[in-house]
Design a binder for these strands. Structure first.
Lengths: 341, 341
DNA sequence: ACGCTCTATGTAAAGGTTTACATATTTGTT
DNA sequence: AACAAATATGTAAACCTTTACATAGAGCGT
């Protein structure tokens, strides 16, 4: 039972008194096997504790049962819930999930490319909008792939994301509805589509409310807590303060609140702040952050479903799936302070 | 070059005008191949873009080049840095890392057991102290394994962790040095050795300072932010307040600070708080949390090194590696307020 | 010039699986 | 009752690699 060497299909065949072909069929295409035989095989499998040797199977089939997920940083608070969605969907279709993270290091990216080339993954889920593999990727044979959050640069790869423009609209509309007019947007200057789209949502909302360029302030950070804090400092230097900050993501918003707190201001009494993403900490900031929720588990589920479709059909049903982000109202937004009214 | 089907060792052999055996040797044992031949082979490899088919190699060798890492929750802020250490070490020895998370679901654990049984991983890194596989694991053939943070229940598996007792001592000693006497320990009642050891450190520190049982308060939570908040509430109910809270981990400490803040108290003026782990957020709480740092990347590095040793030697050099945790002083600790002096 | 050792290379088997094809058995049709 | 068709099973090849063993050639001491 707990032998030193694992049972093979031959062991099962011997005990069930059939050929190995029949065992294989009993497992994968049971309808092609007589009931009585299937029973014998199942018993033999139970006795031996047989599990298919995945290496041999993948070798024979020419493809593995693993999906590679590459993210720039798996510590990203956005990541883990998406992964849950990805994994559940994959597992329920007999696939396993392999996680890689590049830390934005091209060298690491290359290692994953080699990994893919050695046929160890049947498909690829890419978190970065940019293929992390440098230009080699252009010529390389990539397996069926799906992007998460944004399209992959060389096109042809479908992706699943969130409607960032709509999400940003929900944030800006809330601020405007509360009575804010002079609203700063603290952005992320890295070239990610999601960030640009959030900015577009901001502009569109301001447009719709008829708020002119003179009341708009746009600051570019890099999406970190520190860059949020810095944005606030800049504004105090320039002495052109808005009554509200709409931030490109929660990290930035946290930084903004820290910066405001350090200067002795109270959120939301003195300034309102919104984030984007609804990372787990957003509940625990003080005040709790009003933000836009990404349906993370759902994103993962859809991305994997799309990939599995690709793996079986070869053709993507859709090339873009945008999910609806929701406004989560907590305590970082209120009407502007009297100074503004 | 970017053909539809990847190059095999035979393609290389044909172009280099040698046998496939020579190609294999040129790759894995170059010293056994004549210089001129090696050159030809390398050129052929460059031309074809050949990469070893990992499935075939693993099948032939009887072991894969992947290490499975199983954690209860990869979203745990402690996890990602350890993973960096694990990955770097593995990669530099030609191994890849596969990540699994069980979410404490026995069903998931079983899936990973099946995965291991199908020979898809050469080794196992286990984050939970308890084998997540239920009792089947007792009889199952597990590959060489290493635990992280604490020993695996059925013994015989070496592990890498941190000296929790020493770490806890550093926290409690700091509080005592600041002048605190009545110090509450907010623990985690789940049966993890690390938690028990932190409590032991607390008791040892109180003993060493000659502080009697009447000044000790021990509360059991479950390591979450919410349980920290609840602990504070309980204390206010009972009306037996300490001047400082030593928390079993950072999450709990954050909860304690939130609870204290909600009641209008200031940390560290009214109460001091310490955490354990130094999770990334600890810098951004207000006040920034004084805590005990786990050398996470190092833990990962050591754990993987130990596993690789196991894989080659078969014998563990050591069965327990405990790293030294460091005190990180930030702003959540000060001398007790006047009421206590 | 002979035989011995050493080095470089080739041949072929093995690893566990899936599946096309061949064969044997059963069922159904007339 | 005979034959065709359908069903069930077996045989053997293929997937790609590594490596034990065989072989051939070179170098060297006598």
């Amino acid at each position: 039972m707990s032998n030193s060497t694992p049972a093979t299909i031959e062991d099962v065949a011997r005990i069930a008194e059939v050929s190995i072909a029949t065992v294989s069929r009993a497992i994968h295409t049971p309808e092609k096997v007589a009931n009585s035989t299937r029973l014998k095989v199942n018993q033999a499998i139970a006795i031996t504790g047989y599990t298919t040797n995945a290496m041999a199977r993948s070798l024979r089939l020419g493809r593995s049962n693993m999906i590679l997920v590459v993210a720039p940083d798996i510590g990203d608070p956005n990541f883990s819930n998406i992964l849950v969605g990805l994994e559940n969907e994959a597992r329920s279709h007999g696939y396993g999930v392999l996680i890689g993270h590049t830390q934005n290091d091209p060298q690491r990216g290359l290692e994953y490319l080699k990994f893919l080339n050695s046929n160890q993954a049947a498909g690829l889920i890419l978190f970065t909008g940019i293929l992390p593999f440098g230009h080699q990727a252009m010529t390389a044979r990539l397996p069926p792939s799906v992007g998460v959050f944004e399209p992959v640069f060389n096109g042809g790869i479908p992706y699943v994301g969130v409607d960032d423009i709509e999400g940003a609209r929900k944030a800006i509309d809330l601020l405007i509805a509360e009575g804010h007019r002079k609203i700063a947007f603290v952005g992320d200057s890295r070239t990610r589509l999601a960030h640009r789209r959030r900015r577009m949502g901001y502009e569109a909302g301001m447009d719709a409310a008829g708020i002119g360029a003179d009341l708009r302030i746009v600051l570019e950070g890099d999406g970190t807590i520190e860059s949020g804090r810095l944005a606030v400092e800049q504004l105090f230097m320039r002495d052109t303060l808005p009554s509200a900050f709409m931030c490109v993501n929660d990290q930035t918003a946290i930084g903004v609140m820290i910066g405001l707190g350090a200067r002795g201001y109270d959120v939301p009494r003195d300034f309102s702040v919104t984030g984007f993403d609804d990372v787990p900490q957003a509940v625990f900031t003080s005040p709790a952050l009003t933000t836009i929720r990404q349906p993370r588990t759902l994103i993962g589920k859809h991305a994997m479903a799309l990939l599995l479709e690709l793996l079986s059909d070869g053709q993507p049903a859709e090339t873009e799936i945008l999910l609806r982000p929701d406004l989560v109202v907590r305590n970082s937004v209120s009407a502007p302070s009297r100074a503004w009214r």
